[in-house]
């Protein structure tokens, strides 16, 4: 009984995950009537019009560049400041290290929506709304607690003796950080980077709050606006979905292991 149940359940599960995504992918190359007529079949006369319109009318080209800038900036900035802070927490003996760690990690318990009103006012006064720099800063702040949490755990596991040896050779903290901590935490940095990449690339809340002008939109925000403009022009919506998802899915296929551990480490932090 269970011998036949298992493959049946798993096949059904795969179908439920894969079929809608396949319909979306195929649909990007179809016209709306073609999509409604036979959603599951591969496109019979493939067209690239939907992609063209998504970029031209939907502004996804600009949004793609903006997303790339914000994501790259926020991931790099977060990795630098979080690894420095985590190094401090791991290297400073006694209470100070734990206090800094506790303060930074406390942010995990606070949902982003708790602070949106004052955050908006603050960024607005600094002229940082409607700017990619503002998004980089706010994304960094949003992901900092998780990054410190993951990196802190790894940095603590580096044996003290390695640092002592380096200190005897006259290495200061910056050299110990660069030549001991960073090389040894490379796997953790990769894991964290992937977590940050997905969070920043997919973030909608802050662009929605901060961005007003069309040319500062990131992908999730531009995509959300499709819904009002193109309501049920599904092939166009689907082209938007594929453009917005392609980078993450490509990286997922290439670096699957890091991906799973990155997103799981992000989840298991609690």
């Amino acid at each position: 009984m269970t011998k036949t149940l298992r493959p049946a359940v798993l096949t059904l599960g795969v179908a439920v995950v894969v079929l809608p995504l396949l319909v979306v992918l195929f649909g990007t190359f179809k016209t709306l009537p073609q999509l409604f007529d036979s959603p599951l079949s591969p496109p019979s006369s493939p067209t690239l019009d939907n992609y063209r319109q998504a970029v031209d009318e939907g502004g996804l080209g600009t949004a793609f560049v903006n997303s790339a800038v914000v994501t790259a900036g926020a991931v790099l900035l977060t990795l630098v400041v979080a690894s420095l802070a985590a190094f401090f927490c791991a290297r400073v003996p006694g209470r100070a290290g734990w206090i800094v760690f506790g303060v930074l990690v406390a942010g995990l318990a606070v949902p982003a929506q708790a602070a949106i009103v004052p955050q908006y006012v603050l960024f607005d006064r600094l002229g940082l709304t409607d700017s990619l720099l503002g998004l980089i800063l706010v994304d960094t702040t949003m992901t900092l607690p998780t990054a410190v949490f993951i990196l802190g755990g790894f940095l603590r596991s580096i044996p003290e003796e390695l640092y002592e040896a380096a200190e005897l050779d006259g290495a200061g903290p910056l050299r110990a950080f660069r030549s001991i901590a960073l090389p040894l935490t490379r796997p953790a940095l990769a894991t964290t980077a992937i977590f940050l990449f997905v969070m920043d690339w997919n973030d909608l809340l802050y662009p929605l709050l901060f961005v007003r002008s069309q040319d500062q939109r990131t992908l999730p925000l531009a995509l959300l606006n499709f819904q009002g403009e193109f309501l049920t022009r599904y092939p166009l919506l689907f082209a938007g979905v594929v453009i917005a998802s392609a980078p993450v899915v490509v990286v997922y296929v290439l670096l699957q292991k890091h991906f799973v551990s990155g997103l799981t480490a992000g989840a298991v932090r609690g």
Binding site: P20, V24, N202, L224, Q227, F238, A244
Partner: peptide, 15 residues
């Protein structure tokens, strides 16, 4: 089974 997790919420919503 993990694949949907990597997509953006807006993409999933449109699907």
């Amino acid at each position: 089974f993990f694949l949907p997790t990597v997509l953006s919420s807006v993409s999933v919503a449109f699907v």
